[in-house]
């Protein structure tokens, strides 16, 4: 797994690349929670995410719970069919707004493009 971060306007874009499973979900969670200390609007780009299990979902859920306390948001984009199925089965598609592309998600997040 690789994690790439880029601030776009007021949105913290976090791209997760590769596989998130029980062996590395804690690394992802630690990174997201660290970012959430200063950021409130997140976009998780899953375009190059090949695999996620419930351990990875746990990391995203933890982030969302923290963001909710400070009126933050977390959007998702670029989910492949298999990843999307995991989110649907888990009921996570109802927790996170899911957009097709990073560009759409940034528009939905009301990014300040200035």
């Amino acid at each position: 797994m690789e994690i790439a971060e880029a601030k776009k306007g007021n949105v913290m874009v976090v791209e997760i690349i590769g596989r998130v499973d029980s062996t590395n979900a804690d690394v992802l969670q630690a990174r997201l929670l660290k970012l959430a200390e200063t950021e409130t609007i997140f976009l998780i780009d899953c375009l190059r995410l090949d695999y996620i299990s419930s351990a990875g979902l746990g990391a995203l859920l933890h982030l969302l719970k923290i963001l909710q306390k400070k009126a933050g948001r977390c959007l998702l984009s670029g989910l492949g069919a298999s990843i999307r199925e995991v989110f649907d089965i888990s009921g996570f598609s109802k927790l996170f707004p899911i957009l097709a592309s990073q560009e759409e998600a940034l528009r939905a997040a009301g990014m300040n493009s200035a």
Binding site: S54, L57, G58, L61, K65, I89, K94
Partner: peptide
């Protein structure tokens, strides 16, 4: 797991078995 419960009551730990049984 209760998939419609509010965010604060959600637990990822319950999802693994649900995923297995569904997939």
């Amino acid at each position: 797991p209760k998939l419609n419960s509010p965010l604060e009551q959600r637990q990822a730990g319950r999802l693994g078995i649900h995923l297995i049984r569904t997939l």
